[in-house]
Design a protein around this nucleic acid. Structure first.
Length: 465
RNA sequence: GGUGCCAUCGCCAAGUGGUAAGGCCAAGGUCUGCAAAACCUUUACCCCCAGUUCGAAUCUGGGUGGCACCUCCA
């Protein structure tokens, strides 16, 4: 697989640290609220990365953290009159609800910052020992000028970063660019004991501590939104490499942003959507489809119209899958004929194109194109009596692709008894050419949320998605 | 001020040197008791100008237009 590495700004062949294994660390949500549509993009994309790597045989350890202590957590907890811990518990629970509906699998490990305080303290002590950090009045800061590679990841040198800096002057810092590793406790804030007095970790240090705890001091892939490149990931490198003296991460992957009407989504502009908001109006699988239909590094616009387009495309996919199940009912155990052999060849071609697209820096848009090329071939099949071998091949190939994308997770071909009864009655009415009764029954079935089609091989019904 | 990214059909979107995937929408046709779905057909000189090349959407230079990061915002 080739991966665009933000560190080198090039696509590179992926070579894991340990053969056959991949360690991935994904920056997760700060659990002070429902997560928004912009958060959903990396969650979905890197879930697909994980599925793809597994599908080609890697043993993947996927770590995604929960930031459960920071300024936003403290502010929100105070507003709601609950503890930071209670707030975290609530939104971690909500995270899993939305994630499930988006088809995002739980990570191998979901570590929380507050459960890794001792690891955080150990790294800070090491940094102080290495003269890369200094304590002042219960705070500890990173001495940015002492780390030679600072600015390498984001491609800027320190002077340029400083000239553009819009950060508050803080007399305790030796340099305005220095960032906090440990923050002394302020009145009313939760705190943990440390060699520098009670306090809490800064934002960046938790990711260094948790990633190395579960993946080792040097690991394969670190993901996140483009905005995290600086300062968050730059600081993670400074912290981790400053403490261990070893390379921290081999491949950095950053996703582009979601815009609303070409504008950055922000609360102040009122163009802000949480995933929970969207879920009230649309099935979240449509959101997943939408996210995968463009390249992960490009910025994308989000709108109702685009969700509707994704929904129509997804409907076609479900239609093809259910068509295959329908055809299985009349499948024939015989050698495939010429047309069926062609279908089988097309399936191989689509699979090949799909794999090549995914292996090329996770080009899901191109991969979906390959999937639809197979879908067209499937729909060309006659309505009954297809060779089982050809059917199995098409089905297997299609499902293998949709599994990697994490699509088509719903069952749509399970029909409850009452619907079956109506179908049976309609079958009789149709034989008697009682079109009035037949149409009434069709309306009733459709009103119940099912799609009913008449084919040469009988009635075909499936649940509408 | 520094650093990057982007501009392909009505909408979305792949394609990074060899003559434009795919999805949505639309029109016409086939099939159907009617419908639905599906299938077939139709719809792109790739923002502009100049250059390199046998050949450029793809490379170079210059425009124009849009966006982002340098703020604990994915």
């Amino acid at each position: 697989m080739r991966i665009y590495n933000s560190k080198t700004r090039k696509k590179e062949e992926f070579i894991p640290v340990h053969e056959g294994k991949v360690g991935i660390y994904a920056c997760g949500p700060t659990v002070y609220d429902y997560f928004h549509i912009g958060n959903a993009r990396p969650f979905i994309l890197f879930d697909v990365l994980r599925r793809y790597l597994e599908s080609v045989g890697y043993d993947v350890t996927f770590v995604q953290n929960f930031t459960d202590i920071d300024d936003k957590m403290i502010t929100r907890a105070n507003e709601e009159g609950i503890t930071v811990k209670e707030l975290a518990e609530r939104y971690i629970k909500e995270y899993f609800i939305d994630a499930k509906n988006l088809g995002i699998r739980p990570a191998t490990v979901h570590p929380r910052a507050t459960e890794h305080i001792s690891q955080i303290i150990a790294i800070i002590e090491k940094l102080i020992e290495n003269k890369l950090a200094y304590a002042k009045k219960g705070n500890v800061y990173y001495r940015v000028h002492a780390f030679k590679d600072y600015g390498h990841l984001c491609g800027q040198n320190l002077e340029d970063l400083e000239s553009g800096a819009r950060i508050d002057v803080n007399e305790q810092k030796e340099n305005p660019m220095d960032f906090a590793l440990w923050k002394a406790q302020k009145p009313g804030e939760p705190a943990w004991d440390s060699p520098w007095g009670p306090g809490r970790p800064g934002w960046h240090i938790e990711c260094s501590a948790m990633s190395m705890e579960y993946l080792g001091e040097t690991f394969d892939i670190h993901t996140g939104g483009k905005d995290l490149l600086f300062p968050h990931h730059e600081n993670e490198i400074a912290q981790s490499e400053g403490a261990t003296g070893k390379p921290y991460v081999n491949y950095w992957m950053h996703n582009g942003f979601i815009n609303i009407d070409n504008e950055k989504m922000s609360k102040s502009q009122g163009n802000f959507f949480t995933v929970r908001d969207i879920a009230a109006e649309y099935d979240l699988e449509n959101v997943r489809m939408f996210m995968l239909s463009s390249h992960y590094r490009s910025p994308v616009n989000f709108s109702r119209e685009l969700i509707a387009q994704a929904a129509s495309a997804l409907e076609r996919l479900y239609g093809a899958r259910d068509q295959l199940s329908f055809l299985q009912k009349t499948a024939e155990n015989r050698e495939p004929n010429q047309a069926e052999i062609t279908l089988m060849q097309e399936a191989d071609k689509a699979q090949e194109k799909f794999n090549a697209a995914m292996a090329d820096d996770l080009n899901t848009a191109d991969a979906i194109g390959a999937l639809f090329e197979l879908v067209r071939e499937i729909f060309k099949l006659p309505q009954a009596g297809v060779s089982k071998a050809a059917l199995d091949k098409a089905q297997q190939t299609m499902l293998r692709m949709t599994d990697v994308l994490g699509l088509l997770l719903k069952k749509t071909d399970e029909i409850p008894q009452e619907i079956s009864d109506m179908l049976a009655e309609r079958e009789t009415a149709r034989k008697e050419k009682n079109w009035k009764r037949s149409d009434e029954l069709r309306d009733a079935v459709q009103a119940a949320g099912y799609i009913l089609e008449d084919t040469a091989a009988g009635q075909k019904v499936r649940k509408s998605v």
